[in-house]
Design a protein around this nucleic acid. Structure first.
Lengths: 251, 251
DNA sequence: GAGTGGTCTAGACCACCAG
DNA sequence: TGGTGGTCTAGACCACTCC
Protein backbone atom coordinates (compact mmCIF):
# COMPACT_ATOMS: atom_id res chain seq x y z
CA UNK A 1 0.00 0.00 0.00
CA UNK A 2 1.42 3.29 -1.05
CA UNK A 3 1.45 6.16 1.39
CA UNK A 4 0.38 9.06 -0.79
CA UNK A 5 0.99 11.54 1.99
CA UNK A 6 -2.65 12.65 1.86
CA UNK A 7 -2.90 16.36 1.29
CA UNK A 8 0.05 18.43 0.21
CA UNK A 9 1.48 20.95 2.61
CA UNK A 10 1.26 24.56 1.55
CA UNK A 11 4.63 25.92 0.46
CA UNK A 12 6.09 28.53 -1.78
CA UNK A 13 5.78 26.54 -4.99
CA UNK A 14 2.52 26.11 -6.83
CA UNK A 15 0.28 23.15 -6.25
CA UNK A 16 1.24 21.53 -9.53
CA UNK A 17 4.98 21.77 -8.84
CA UNK A 18 4.53 20.35 -5.37
CA UNK A 19 2.56 17.46 -6.84
CA UNK A 20 5.33 16.80 -9.36
CA UNK A 21 7.89 16.75 -6.56
CA UNK A 22 5.79 14.43 -4.43
CA UNK A 23 5.13 11.93 -7.20
CA UNK A 24 8.74 12.05 -8.35
CA UNK A 25 10.07 11.23 -4.92
CA UNK A 26 7.52 8.45 -4.42
CA UNK A 27 8.76 6.88 -7.63
CA UNK A 28 12.45 7.40 -6.93
CA UNK A 29 12.06 5.93 -3.44
CA UNK A 30 10.30 2.95 -4.94
CA UNK A 31 7.12 3.51 -2.95
CA UNK A 32 5.40 2.97 -6.26
CA UNK A 33 7.08 0.04 -7.96
CA UNK A 34 8.30 0.19 -11.58
CA UNK A 35 5.53 -1.00 -13.88
CA UNK A 36 2.89 -0.50 -11.22
CA UNK A 37 -0.37 1.17 -12.15
CA UNK A 38 -1.38 4.41 -10.47
CA UNK A 39 -4.92 4.97 -9.25
CA UNK A 40 -7.14 6.52 -11.90
CA UNK A 41 -6.82 10.25 -12.32
CA UNK A 42 -10.11 11.15 -10.57
CA UNK A 43 -9.27 8.74 -7.74
CA UNK A 44 -5.70 9.98 -7.30
CA UNK A 45 -6.88 13.58 -7.44
CA UNK A 46 -9.28 12.80 -4.61
CA UNK A 47 -6.54 11.09 -2.59
CA UNK A 48 -4.16 14.02 -3.02
CA UNK A 49 -6.92 16.52 -2.38
CA UNK A 50 -6.41 18.36 -5.67
CA UNK A 51 -8.41 18.76 -8.85
CA UNK A 52 -8.00 16.52 -11.85
CA UNK A 53 -6.62 19.21 -14.23
CA UNK A 54 -3.90 20.07 -11.72
CA UNK A 55 -3.04 16.39 -11.31
CA UNK A 56 -3.00 15.92 -15.06
CA UNK A 57 -0.51 18.76 -15.51
CA UNK A 58 1.76 17.19 -12.91
CA UNK A 59 1.50 13.75 -14.53
CA UNK A 60 2.24 15.23 -17.95
CA UNK A 61 5.49 16.62 -16.62
CA UNK A 62 6.54 13.21 -15.33
CA UNK A 63 5.51 11.55 -18.59
CA UNK A 64 7.80 13.98 -20.41
CA UNK A 65 10.54 12.98 -17.98
CA UNK A 66 9.96 9.31 -18.81
CA UNK A 67 9.02 8.41 -15.27
CA UNK A 68 5.38 7.66 -16.07
CA UNK A 69 3.64 6.11 -19.06
CA UNK A 70 0.04 6.86 -19.97
CA UNK A 71 -2.12 4.33 -21.82
CA UNK A 72 -5.41 5.64 -23.00
CA UNK A 73 -8.33 3.53 -21.87
CA UNK A 74 -6.00 1.53 -19.63
CA UNK A 75 -4.25 3.61 -17.03
CA UNK A 76 -1.10 5.40 -15.97
CA UNK A 77 1.95 3.35 -15.00
CA UNK A 78 5.36 3.89 -13.49
CA UNK A 79 7.90 3.34 -16.26
CA UNK A 80 9.27 -0.19 -16.18
CA UNK A 81 12.83 1.03 -16.62
CA UNK A 82 13.14 4.45 -15.04
CA UNK A 83 15.87 6.49 -16.72
CA UNK A 84 19.21 6.33 -14.94
CA UNK A 85 21.33 9.28 -13.89
CA UNK A 86 20.31 11.99 -16.22
CA UNK A 87 20.28 15.69 -16.81
CA UNK A 88 17.23 16.60 -18.89
CA UNK A 89 18.19 19.59 -20.86
CA UNK A 90 15.03 21.00 -22.24
CA UNK A 91 14.12 22.49 -18.88
CA UNK A 92 16.37 25.20 -17.62
CA UNK A 93 17.69 24.18 -14.23
CA UNK A 94 20.63 25.02 -12.08
CA UNK A 95 23.19 22.24 -12.01
CA UNK A 96 22.63 21.64 -8.29
CA UNK A 97 18.95 21.08 -8.95
CA UNK A 98 19.73 18.72 -11.82
CA UNK A 99 22.01 16.65 -9.64
CA UNK A 100 19.53 16.53 -6.79
CA UNK A 101 16.71 15.50 -9.09
CA UNK A 102 18.74 12.39 -9.65
CA UNK A 103 18.80 11.67 -5.98
CA UNK A 104 22.42 12.66 -5.46
CA UNK A 105 23.95 15.19 -3.16
CA UNK A 106 25.09 18.31 -4.99
CA UNK A 107 28.23 20.06 -3.85
CA UNK A 108 30.71 22.70 -4.90
CA UNK A 109 34.48 22.81 -4.65
CA UNK A 110 37.21 25.17 -5.83
CA UNK A 111 34.99 28.22 -5.92
CA UNK A 112 36.65 31.41 -7.13
CA UNK A 113 35.19 34.84 -7.77
CA UNK A 114 37.35 37.33 -9.66
CA UNK A 115 37.11 40.61 -11.50
CA UNK A 116 38.54 40.65 -15.00
CA UNK A 117 38.31 42.53 -18.24
CA UNK A 118 36.85 40.75 -21.25
CA UNK A 119 39.16 39.19 -23.78
CA UNK A 120 38.18 39.72 -27.43
CA UNK A 121 36.70 36.19 -27.54
CA UNK A 122 34.68 36.66 -24.38
CA UNK A 123 33.49 40.08 -25.48
CA UNK A 124 32.21 38.49 -28.67
CA UNK A 125 30.31 35.87 -26.67
CA UNK A 126 28.83 38.43 -24.30
CA UNK A 127 28.01 40.95 -26.97
CA UNK A 128 30.06 43.45 -24.99
CA UNK A 129 33.02 45.71 -25.66
CA UNK A 130 36.51 44.28 -25.56
CA UNK A 131 38.02 45.00 -22.18
CA UNK A 132 34.62 45.41 -20.51
CA UNK A 133 34.64 44.69 -16.78
CA UNK A 134 33.24 41.29 -15.95
CA UNK A 135 32.86 39.10 -12.90
CA UNK A 136 34.21 35.62 -13.39
CA UNK A 137 33.08 32.73 -11.25
CA UNK A 138 34.67 29.31 -11.53
CA UNK A 139 33.65 26.24 -9.59
CA UNK A 140 33.57 22.47 -9.71
CA UNK A 141 30.24 20.80 -9.15
CA UNK A 142 30.11 17.42 -7.43
CA UNK A 143 27.50 14.68 -7.18
CA UNK A 144 27.81 12.53 -4.07
CA UNK A 145 31.29 13.97 -3.72
CA UNK A 146 32.57 13.08 -7.19
CA UNK A 147 33.30 15.95 -9.58
CA UNK A 148 30.91 15.92 -12.55
CA UNK A 149 31.28 19.38 -14.03
CA UNK A 150 33.64 22.32 -14.11
CA UNK A 151 32.02 25.67 -14.78
CA UNK A 152 33.38 29.05 -15.85
CA UNK A 153 30.79 31.84 -15.69
CA UNK A 154 31.09 35.47 -16.73
CA UNK A 155 28.68 38.31 -15.91
CA UNK A 156 29.17 41.88 -17.19
CA UNK A 157 29.65 44.18 -14.22
CA UNK A 158 27.50 46.94 -15.66
CA UNK A 159 24.43 44.72 -15.34
CA UNK A 160 24.96 44.45 -11.59
CA UNK A 161 23.70 47.06 -9.13
CA UNK A 162 27.20 47.21 -7.62
CA UNK A 163 30.53 46.09 -8.89
CA UNK A 164 30.88 43.88 -5.82
CA UNK A 165 27.35 42.43 -5.82
CA UNK A 166 28.60 38.90 -6.35
CA UNK A 167 31.80 39.06 -4.29
CA UNK A 168 30.18 37.23 -1.39
CA UNK A 169 28.98 34.39 -3.63
CA UNK A 170 29.27 31.20 -1.59
CA UNK A 171 29.65 27.46 -2.03
CA UNK A 172 25.98 26.74 -1.47
CA UNK A 173 24.59 29.69 -3.41
CA UNK A 174 22.57 29.38 -6.57
CA UNK A 175 23.83 31.75 -9.24
CA UNK A 176 20.43 31.85 -10.90
CA UNK A 177 18.87 32.86 -7.59
CA UNK A 178 21.49 35.55 -7.05
CA UNK A 179 20.92 36.93 -10.53
CA UNK A 180 17.16 36.91 -9.95
CA UNK A 181 17.78 38.97 -6.79
CA UNK A 182 19.22 41.73 -8.94
CA UNK A 183 16.45 41.62 -11.56
CA UNK A 184 18.40 39.41 -13.94
CA UNK A 185 16.14 36.37 -13.90
CA UNK A 186 17.40 33.96 -16.55
CA UNK A 187 14.56 32.82 -18.77
CA UNK A 188 16.27 31.43 -21.80
CA UNK A 189 19.61 29.81 -22.53
CA UNK A 190 21.09 28.99 -25.89
CA UNK A 191 23.46 26.08 -25.41
CA UNK A 192 26.07 24.97 -27.93
CA UNK A 193 27.57 21.50 -27.77
CA UNK A 194 31.30 21.12 -28.26
CA UNK A 195 33.08 17.81 -27.75
CA UNK A 196 36.57 18.40 -26.43
CA UNK A 197 39.48 16.75 -24.65
CA UNK A 198 40.51 17.08 -21.04
CA UNK A 199 43.79 18.95 -20.78
CA UNK A 200 45.98 18.73 -17.73
CA UNK A 201 44.08 21.31 -15.70
CA UNK A 202 40.64 20.02 -16.60
CA UNK A 203 41.63 16.42 -15.96
CA UNK A 204 42.64 17.37 -12.44
CA UNK A 205 39.45 19.27 -11.78
CA UNK A 206 37.21 16.49 -13.10
CA UNK A 207 39.34 13.74 -11.55
CA UNK A 208 39.87 11.98 -14.84
CA UNK A 209 42.69 11.17 -17.24
CA UNK A 210 44.28 13.67 -19.60
CA UNK A 211 42.81 13.20 -23.06
CA UNK A 212 39.44 11.96 -21.84
CA UNK A 213 36.58 13.14 -24.07
CA UNK A 214 34.64 15.86 -22.26
CA UNK A 215 31.46 17.62 -23.29
CA UNK A 216 31.66 21.39 -23.28
CA UNK A 217 28.44 23.38 -23.15
CA UNK A 218 28.84 26.98 -24.22
CA UNK A 219 25.81 28.80 -22.89
CA UNK A 220 24.44 32.27 -23.51
CA UNK A 221 21.94 33.29 -20.86
CA UNK A 222 19.15 35.78 -21.53
CA UNK A 223 16.72 37.47 -19.14
CA UNK A 224 13.55 39.29 -20.06
CA UNK A 225 14.57 42.54 -18.45
CA UNK A 226 17.53 42.84 -20.82
CA UNK A 227 16.06 41.26 -23.89
CA UNK A 228 18.88 41.99 -26.28
CA UNK A 229 21.90 41.37 -24.09
CA UNK A 230 23.65 38.29 -22.88
CA UNK A 231 23.30 38.39 -19.11
CA UNK A 232 25.82 35.62 -18.54
CA UNK A 233 28.11 33.47 -20.64
CA UNK A 234 29.28 30.15 -19.31
CA UNK A 235 31.45 27.21 -20.25
CA UNK A 236 30.40 23.98 -18.58
CA UNK A 237 32.76 21.02 -18.95
CA UNK A 238 30.91 17.78 -18.23
CA UNK A 239 32.44 14.47 -17.25
CA UNK A 240 29.89 12.34 -19.09
CA UNK A 241 31.25 9.21 -17.49
CA UNK A 242 29.64 10.38 -14.28
CA UNK A 243 26.70 12.44 -15.46
CA UNK A 244 24.36 11.56 -18.28
CA UNK A 245 23.30 14.39 -20.57
CA UNK A 246 20.24 14.01 -22.66
CA UNK A 247 17.34 15.91 -24.13
CA UNK A 248 13.94 15.10 -25.53
CA UNK A 249 13.12 16.13 -29.08
CA UNK A 250 9.49 16.33 -30.05
CA UNK A 251 7.92 16.36 -33.46
CA UNK B 1 -8.78 46.03 -36.71
CA UNK B 2 -7.80 42.43 -36.58
CA UNK B 3 -10.01 39.85 -38.16
CA UNK B 4 -9.93 37.06 -35.62
CA UNK B 5 -11.90 34.73 -37.85
CA UNK B 6 -14.65 34.39 -35.27
CA UNK B 7 -15.23 30.78 -34.36
CA UNK B 8 -12.84 28.07 -35.35
CA UNK B 9 -13.91 25.48 -37.86
CA UNK B 10 -14.12 21.91 -36.63
CA UNK B 11 -11.29 19.79 -37.97
CA UNK B 12 -9.30 16.75 -37.11
CA UNK B 13 -6.93 18.51 -34.71
CA UNK B 14 -7.93 19.46 -31.21
CA UNK B 15 -9.31 22.86 -30.40
CA UNK B 16 -6.08 23.96 -28.76
CA UNK B 17 -3.91 23.02 -31.76
CA UNK B 18 -6.28 24.78 -34.13
CA UNK B 19 -6.09 27.89 -31.96
CA UNK B 20 -2.29 27.76 -32.01
CA UNK B 21 -2.32 27.48 -35.79
CA UNK B 22 -4.75 30.36 -36.16
CA UNK B 23 -2.86 32.71 -33.87
CA UNK B 24 0.48 31.75 -35.39
CA UNK B 25 -0.69 32.55 -38.91
CA UNK B 26 -2.24 35.83 -37.79
CA UNK B 27 1.12 36.81 -36.35
CA UNK B 28 3.19 35.58 -39.29
CA UNK B 29 0.92 37.40 -41.73
CA UNK B 30 1.30 40.56 -39.70
CA UNK B 31 -2.44 40.86 -39.01
CA UNK B 32 -1.34 41.46 -35.45
CA UNK B 33 1.63 43.81 -35.55
CA UNK B 34 4.88 43.12 -33.67
CA UNK B 35 4.67 44.67 -30.20
CA UNK B 36 0.90 44.95 -30.39
CA UNK B 37 -1.16 43.92 -27.41
CA UNK B 38 -3.70 41.12 -27.69
CA UNK B 39 -7.16 41.44 -26.18
CA UNK B 40 -7.29 40.17 -22.61
CA UNK B 41 -7.58 36.44 -22.21
CA UNK B 42 -11.27 36.40 -21.23
CA UNK B 43 -12.05 38.80 -24.06
CA UNK B 44 -10.10 36.87 -26.70
CA UNK B 45 -11.59 33.61 -25.51
CA UNK B 46 -15.03 35.09 -26.03
CA UNK B 47 -14.09 36.37 -29.50
CA UNK B 48 -12.73 32.98 -30.56
CA UNK B 49 -15.63 31.17 -28.95
CA UNK B 50 -13.45 28.98 -26.74
CA UNK B 51 -12.81 28.75 -23.02
CA UNK B 52 -10.04 30.59 -21.27
CA UNK B 53 -8.03 27.49 -20.24
CA UNK B 54 -7.97 26.29 -23.84
CA UNK B 55 -6.87 29.71 -25.01
CA UNK B 56 -4.22 29.87 -22.30
CA UNK B 57 -2.73 26.56 -23.42
CA UNK B 58 -2.54 27.83 -26.99
CA UNK B 59 -0.94 31.09 -25.90
CA UNK B 60 1.58 29.21 -23.73
CA UNK B 61 2.71 27.29 -26.79
CA UNK B 62 3.32 30.51 -28.70
CA UNK B 63 5.12 32.05 -25.73
CA UNK B 64 7.45 29.04 -25.70
CA UNK B 65 8.05 29.67 -29.41
CA UNK B 66 8.96 33.30 -28.61
CA UNK B 67 6.14 34.65 -30.76
CA UNK B 68 4.20 36.07 -27.82
CA UNK B 69 5.28 37.69 -24.56
CA UNK B 70 3.16 37.64 -21.44
CA UNK B 71 3.43 40.40 -18.84
CA UNK B 72 1.59 39.70 -15.66
CA UNK B 73 -0.82 42.43 -14.74
CA UNK B 74 -0.21 44.11 -18.07
CA UNK B 75 -1.16 41.96 -21.02
CA UNK B 76 -0.01 39.64 -23.77
CA UNK B 77 1.95 41.07 -26.67
CA UNK B 78 3.29 39.97 -30.01
CA UNK B 79 7.08 39.74 -29.73
CA UNK B 80 8.75 42.91 -30.96
CA UNK B 81 11.79 41.24 -32.48
CA UNK B 82 10.94 38.57 -35.04
CA UNK B 83 11.85 35.12 -33.70
CA UNK B 84 15.29 34.24 -34.99
CA UNK B 85 15.33 31.10 -37.07
CA UNK B 86 16.43 28.51 -34.57
CA UNK B 87 17.61 25.30 -36.17
CA UNK B 88 18.10 23.87 -32.69
CA UNK B 89 17.62 20.44 -31.37
CA UNK B 90 14.44 20.81 -29.44
CA UNK B 91 12.41 20.35 -32.59
CA UNK B 92 12.57 16.95 -34.11
CA UNK B 93 13.84 17.14 -37.66
CA UNK B 94 15.51 14.89 -40.13
CA UNK B 95 19.19 15.68 -40.62
CA UNK B 96 18.60 16.71 -44.23
CA UNK B 97 16.09 19.29 -43.09
CA UNK B 98 18.46 20.57 -40.40
CA UNK B 99 21.23 21.02 -42.93
CA UNK B 100 18.96 22.78 -45.38
CA UNK B 101 17.72 25.14 -42.67
CA UNK B 102 21.34 26.25 -42.44
CA UNK B 103 21.17 27.17 -46.09
CA UNK B 104 23.37 24.31 -47.19
CA UNK B 105 22.76 21.51 -49.65
CA UNK B 106 22.11 18.18 -47.95
CA UNK B 107 23.46 15.00 -49.46
CA UNK B 108 24.12 11.36 -48.67
CA UNK B 109 27.07 9.12 -49.42
CA UNK B 110 28.10 5.59 -48.52
CA UNK B 111 24.58 4.34 -48.00
CA UNK B 112 24.28 0.74 -46.88
CA UNK B 113 21.22 -1.29 -45.89
CA UNK B 114 21.84 -4.64 -44.18
CA UNK B 115 20.03 -7.28 -42.19
CA UNK B 116 21.64 -8.25 -38.91
CA UNK B 117 20.84 -9.80 -35.58
CA UNK B 118 21.04 -7.61 -32.49
CA UNK B 119 24.15 -7.70 -30.35
CA UNK B 120 23.52 -7.69 -26.59
CA UNK B 121 24.35 -3.97 -26.46
CA UNK B 122 22.00 -3.09 -29.31
CA UNK B 123 19.23 -5.29 -27.89
CA UNK B 124 19.53 -3.34 -24.64
CA UNK B 125 19.20 -0.05 -26.49
CA UNK B 126 16.24 -1.25 -28.53
CA UNK B 127 14.50 -2.96 -25.65
CA UNK B 128 14.49 -6.12 -27.77
CA UNK B 129 15.74 -9.67 -27.35
CA UNK B 130 19.36 -10.46 -28.00
CA UNK B 131 19.72 -11.80 -31.51
CA UNK B 132 16.51 -10.15 -32.71
CA UNK B 133 16.42 -9.45 -36.43
CA UNK B 134 17.11 -5.81 -37.25
CA UNK B 135 17.61 -3.69 -40.33
CA UNK B 136 20.76 -1.60 -40.19
CA UNK B 137 21.18 1.50 -42.27
CA UNK B 138 24.44 3.41 -42.37
CA UNK B 139 25.10 6.58 -44.29
CA UNK B 140 27.22 9.70 -44.29
CA UNK B 141 25.39 13.01 -44.47
CA UNK B 142 27.01 15.89 -46.30
CA UNK B 143 26.46 19.64 -46.29
CA UNK B 144 27.55 21.38 -49.48
CA UNK B 145 29.46 18.20 -50.26
CA UNK B 146 31.46 18.04 -47.03
CA UNK B 147 30.73 15.18 -44.65
CA UNK B 148 29.21 16.47 -41.41
CA UNK B 149 27.69 13.36 -39.84
CA UNK B 150 27.94 9.62 -39.95
CA UNK B 151 24.77 7.77 -38.95
CA UNK B 152 24.11 4.19 -37.91
CA UNK B 153 20.42 3.38 -37.62
CA UNK B 154 18.73 0.18 -36.47
CA UNK B 155 15.07 -0.79 -36.83
CA UNK B 156 13.64 -4.06 -35.45
CA UNK B 157 12.32 -6.13 -38.36
CA UNK B 158 9.21 -7.24 -36.51
CA UNK B 159 7.92 -3.67 -36.51
CA UNK B 160 7.99 -3.59 -40.31
CA UNK B 161 5.17 -4.96 -42.46
CA UNK B 162 7.73 -6.98 -44.40
CA UNK B 163 11.26 -7.98 -43.64
CA UNK B 164 12.35 -6.25 -46.84
CA UNK B 165 10.30 -3.07 -46.45
CA UNK B 166 13.39 -0.86 -46.27
CA UNK B 167 15.61 -2.73 -48.71
CA UNK B 168 14.93 -0.19 -51.45
CA UNK B 169 15.88 2.75 -49.20
CA UNK B 170 17.63 5.30 -51.40
CA UNK B 171 20.11 8.15 -51.16
CA UNK B 172 17.47 10.84 -51.25
CA UNK B 173 14.92 9.14 -49.05
CA UNK B 174 13.85 10.40 -45.66
CA UNK B 175 13.90 7.63 -43.10
CA UNK B 176 11.27 9.40 -40.99
CA UNK B 177 8.98 9.56 -44.01
CA UNK B 178 9.54 5.88 -44.78
CA UNK B 179 8.78 4.94 -41.18
CA UNK B 180 5.63 7.07 -41.23
CA UNK B 181 4.54 5.14 -44.34
CA UNK B 182 4.47 1.96 -42.28
CA UNK B 183 2.61 3.48 -39.31
CA UNK B 184 5.78 4.16 -37.33
CA UNK B 185 5.60 7.93 -37.21
CA UNK B 186 8.34 9.14 -34.89
CA UNK B 187 6.95 11.57 -32.37
CA UNK B 188 9.60 11.67 -29.72
CA UNK B 189 13.33 11.14 -29.55
CA UNK B 190 15.46 10.87 -26.46
CA UNK B 191 18.94 11.99 -27.39
CA UNK B 192 21.99 11.30 -25.26
CA UNK B 193 25.17 13.31 -25.72
CA UNK B 194 28.46 11.46 -25.68
CA UNK B 195 31.73 13.18 -26.53
CA UNK B 196 34.06 10.75 -28.24
CA UNK B 197 37.15 10.49 -30.41
CA UNK B 198 37.36 9.74 -34.10
CA UNK B 199 38.91 6.34 -34.69
CA UNK B 200 40.45 5.38 -38.00
CA UNK B 201 37.18 4.43 -39.68
CA UNK B 202 35.23 7.42 -38.42
CA UNK B 203 38.03 9.84 -39.32
CA UNK B 204 37.87 8.61 -42.91
CA UNK B 205 34.11 8.89 -43.10
CA UNK B 206 34.05 12.39 -41.62
CA UNK B 207 37.16 13.49 -43.51
CA UNK B 208 39.00 14.51 -40.39
CA UNK B 209 42.04 13.48 -38.38
CA UNK B 210 42.19 10.44 -36.13
CA UNK B 211 41.66 11.55 -32.52
CA UNK B 212 39.50 14.54 -33.38
CA UNK B 213 36.78 15.12 -30.78
CA UNK B 214 33.44 14.07 -32.24
CA UNK B 215 29.98 14.43 -30.76
CA UNK B 216 28.00 11.20 -30.66
CA UNK B 217 24.23 11.43 -30.35
CA UNK B 218 22.67 8.21 -29.17
CA UNK B 219 19.01 8.48 -30.03
CA UNK B 220 16.04 6.37 -29.07
CA UNK B 221 13.06 7.00 -31.32
CA UNK B 222 9.49 6.46 -30.15
CA UNK B 223 6.21 6.47 -32.04
CA UNK B 224 2.79 6.69 -30.52
CA UNK B 225 1.57 3.44 -32.02
CA UNK B 226 4.19 1.48 -30.07
CA UNK B 227 4.37 3.39 -26.82
CA UNK B 228 6.70 1.16 -24.91
CA UNK B 229 9.06 0.13 -27.65
CA UNK B 230 11.97 1.82 -29.28
CA UNK B 231 11.08 2.07 -32.96
CA UNK B 232 14.60 2.97 -34.00
CA UNK B 233 17.95 3.37 -32.33
CA UNK B 234 20.61 5.49 -33.94
CA UNK B 235 24.16 6.65 -33.40
CA UNK B 236 24.93 9.96 -35.07
CA UNK B 237 28.58 11.03 -35.10
CA UNK B 238 28.84 14.75 -35.72
CA UNK B 239 31.83 16.64 -36.98
CA UNK B 240 31.19 19.77 -34.95
CA UNK B 241 33.86 21.65 -36.81
CA UNK B 242 31.50 21.69 -39.78
CA UNK B 243 28.06 21.64 -38.17
CA UNK B 244 26.94 23.62 -35.16
CA UNK B 245 24.76 21.85 -32.63
CA UNK B 246 22.78 23.85 -30.19
CA UNK B 247 19.53 23.91 -28.31
CA UNK B 248 17.37 26.39 -26.44
CA UNK B 249 16.60 25.79 -22.79
CA UNK B 250 13.65 27.56 -21.27
CA UNK B 251 12.83 28.30 -17.68
C1' DG C 1 -9.29 50.85 -8.06
C1' DA C 2 -9.58 48.70 -12.51
C1' DG C 3 -7.68 45.49 -15.47
C1' DT C 4 -4.41 41.97 -16.43
C1' DG C 5 -2.33 37.32 -16.29
C1' DG C 6 -1.61 33.05 -12.79
C1' DT C 7 -3.75 29.30 -10.50
C1' DC C 8 -7.02 26.05 -9.18
C1' DT C 9 -11.54 23.87 -9.01
C1' DA C 10 -15.71 20.96 -10.39
C1' DG C 11 -17.65 18.68 -13.70
C1' DA C 12 -19.19 17.43 -18.40
C1' DC C 13 -18.53 14.68 -22.50
C1' DC C 14 -15.84 11.84 -25.55
C1' DA C 15 -12.65 8.00 -27.39
C1' DC C 16 -10.43 4.11 -26.23
C1' DC C 17 -9.49 -0.49 -24.10
C1' DA C 18 -10.49 -4.62 -21.71
C1' DG C 19 -13.55 -8.15 -19.86
C1' DT D 1 -20.26 -2.71 -20.35
C1' DG D 2 -17.48 -0.30 -17.15
C1' DG D 3 -13.33 2.04 -16.30
C1' DT D 4 -9.58 4.78 -18.18
C1' DG D 5 -7.27 8.77 -20.10
C1' DG D 6 -8.20 13.06 -23.53
C1' DT D 7 -10.52 17.32 -24.04
C1' DC D 8 -13.05 21.30 -23.07
C1' DT D 9 -15.94 24.41 -20.34
C1' DA D 10 -17.37 27.97 -16.78
C1' DG D 11 -16.07 30.33 -13.22
C1' DA D 12 -13.76 31.50 -8.77
C1' DC D 13 -10.01 33.69 -6.50
C1' DC D 14 -5.38 35.61 -6.26
C1' DA D 15 -1.15 38.58 -7.43
C1' DC D 16 0.56 41.91 -10.00
C1' DT D 17 0.81 46.38 -12.70
C1' DC D 18 -0.53 50.76 -13.70
C1' DC D 19 -3.31 54.89 -13.31
Amino acid sequence: MTDWGIRLAAEKQGLEDRTVTRLRSLIREGQIAPGEQLPSEPELARILGISRPTLRSAISELVADQLLVRRRGVGTFVASSPPALSHGFEHLRGSAESIELNGQAAGTTDLEVRHESATPELAECLGAEEGAAVVRITRTRTADGAPVMYAEEWIPEDLLPERTSLDDFGFDDSLYARLADVQLTVRRVVARFVPTLADDDLAKRLDTAVGTPVLLLEQRHYSDSETDRVVMFSNNYHNTQRIDLHTVRRG
